[in-house]
Design a binder for these strands. Sequence first.
DNA 1: ACGTACGGGACGGCCCGTTTGT
DNA 2: ACAAACGGGCCGTCCCGTACGT
Lengths: 199, 199, 199, 199
Amino acid sequence: VAIQAAPKASSAGDTRQRLIGIAVRLFTRHSFAGTSLQMIADELGVTKAAVYHHFHTREELLLAVLEPLFLELEAGVVRAEALRTPHARAEHALTGFVALAVRNRSLVSVLAGDPGVIEMVRTHPRLGAVIDRQVRLLADVHPGRAGEVGAAVVMSGTACAVGQVLDLDDEELHRYLVEVARRALGLRPPRRPVGTSDR
Amino acid sequence: VAIQAAPKASSAGDTRQRLIGIAVRLFTRHSFAGTSLQMIADELGVTKAAVYHHFHTREELLLAVLEPLFLELEAGVVRAEALRTPHARAEHALTGFVALAVRNRSLVSVLAGDPGVIEMVRTHPRLGAVIDRQVRLLADVHPGRAGEVGAAVVMSGTACAVGQVLDLDDEELHRYLVEVARRALGLRPPRRPVGTSDR
Amino acid sequence: VAIQAAPKASSAGDTRQRLIGIAVRLFTRHSFAGTSLQMIADELGVTKAAVYHHFHTREELLLAVLEPLFLELEAGVVRAEALRTPHARAEHALTGFVALAVRNRSLVSVLAGDPGVIEMVRTHPRLGAVIDRQVRLLADVHPGRAGEVGAAVVMSGTACAVGQVLDLDDEELHRYLVEVARRALGLRPPRRPVGTSDR
Amino acid sequence: VAIQAAPKASSAGDTRQRLIGIAVRLFTRHSFAGTSLQMIADELGVTKAAVYHHFHTREELLLAVLEPLFLELEAGVVRAEALRTPHARAEHALTGFVALAVRNRSLVSVLAGDPGVIEMVRTHPRLGAVIDRQVRLLADVHPGRAGEVGAAVVMSGTACAVGQVLDLDDEELHRYLVEVARRALGLRPPRRPVGTSDR
DNA sequence: ACGTACGGGACGGCCCGTTTGT
DNA sequence: ACAAACGGGCCGTCCCGTACGT
């Protein structure tokens, strides 16, 4: 079945996935605001109406693009919240976030700065809640407003910085980001060092 | 001069100044990309042609808005570069930048994230150079790529965070930001406790 | 029949009937021009293709909606035409029309004003003929052009007015409408006071 | 001045007036809902943007078209309201309305039935108020709900009927309409008959 | 009897930049 | 120094109709 159903399956729900992929590519190049439906349709070789069939709105398309990222982030948040000490919670939330941001650098860096995206995320009930919980995890390591400021700086800074240092491989970038973020938040590195990376 | 030239001079270059002021207001509300010439013209009560008379393009207007910010930033960079130790240079560059960002929160936070603004600043010869020098000052406290990453995180994080913590007064926000940034960069606080030289 | 054929028959021509019912509801809310096939399909929980399967065009659906109304109107016209005096013919045509309009207020009021519906009715051979015969019945109580004008005013006025006086129950509205229309056409009220034959 | 300023004045506020004129022509042919900005722009030989310069919205254009009609109607209403007896007030309001409707037949008949226009008029504060006052003048000749129903029938009927009897000249149509409306409302004709028209 | 996918086209709205006329 | 008018173009949304599958 799987053998001959391949060409059929390619049409069943596949165009939707291809659309998302193309959207990711174009969003990373021209940001969300700078990517028109026409560009997306052209890139796939169909008309705008075909795009409209799958996503009735540009926002809906953006949502579909963000969905996997937020699912992963939420999973990390849930795991972090289950830990015992604030220190451990922040540590886990931090590394998870950095890993996510590094792995999707181009997308994260460009979407994190787009006003339209920010507005959308803040408005959306589930997405905004995930962000809030993540921020709280990082903020709770310091009491009071200082913690909030630190969390905001680390989150925004990380999200933006991943797009500016393009000539580092994922592993290195991840290490440097975690280091600077740990210092910013006042987190001591975990007891078992992960290699000699403590330069 | 002030006696008889006042009404004349107010009409001479005054509209231009008012235009800039309005642009700042609207940019802070709707970002740069979301602010059309029409909106600016309407806000001042003139037609688009009047705006066009002073600024032949939207970019030119943006430049005029950014000009004073970058002049101040450049002055701080120049002063910082004259200091002797990397530590002192970074310290000075940091506090200057934070003070600037805090004082112009709404504008900085919204413009720092706008892709169009970023693109413009990076291509512009003078503006881009100022940013590069500022980044270098912060980066040189740590050798190698780690310094670059740290500087990027601190710069981006600060610029974005000032717009997210709206219920703090300038002084408190400044203090918290400097604290977290110092930790992130690994700067020890200066021996002289907080005085007027900090700002 | 009702025992075992019920579920079968309900699926056979039932969707078509439900489609018509939903169309009536949506037409009354958004008029004909403002109701898209998509809205109808969504309301029923099927796709446009399903609608298209039953009605190959929006006009066809409109026709199906209008069909019962015009059948009833035609029956009244036929009965009226069989009467002997012009006065009796007009009286019968009037009360029948008012009763029809009142009973289907929301639909009649919104469809009577829709240019698309009017165009459709006028071009359609059978529907247009019914209207013409109805108008003639009312017009013939006065000779010449005056009768035509009166008939037009009464017909249009009644059809539009039923949608504007929403806080009257059917019986009252019917009585008032018949009164004003009789006066407009110069019809003396029938000798037999109001009974069941009036409706 | 008037001689050589003609070509200049033609450009002054004239395009706006020509736009309104064209809109009237097209509205009468295709109704409001059926007239796109593109059609209007094409008819005048300009682009949509030129239309947008004068009317930022299709509604705005419609408003400009309706403006003179409602001004005249309001003037009639004001005069009517100053009379002493309800009978005289209704008589004046009726003849004024009929004259207005007859003189602008094609426009009135098509706009009166358009759902979009009706919605707009009802929403608009001033326009809706004028209509309400006019209806009240006609309704107050009969007490209670009967008066309201009569006024609604006469108003709607007249507005719709003017578009259906196209082969009557203005004077005849006006006479017939006033006759039927007087009968519908129960108004006795004024003492000085206007000729032998009381057929 | 109905779903999936898509084409082709229109719509209202709004943009930026330019010309022309004071 | 400013206003009026306009061009050319793009945007997102939504439409109706039609293949082609089951």
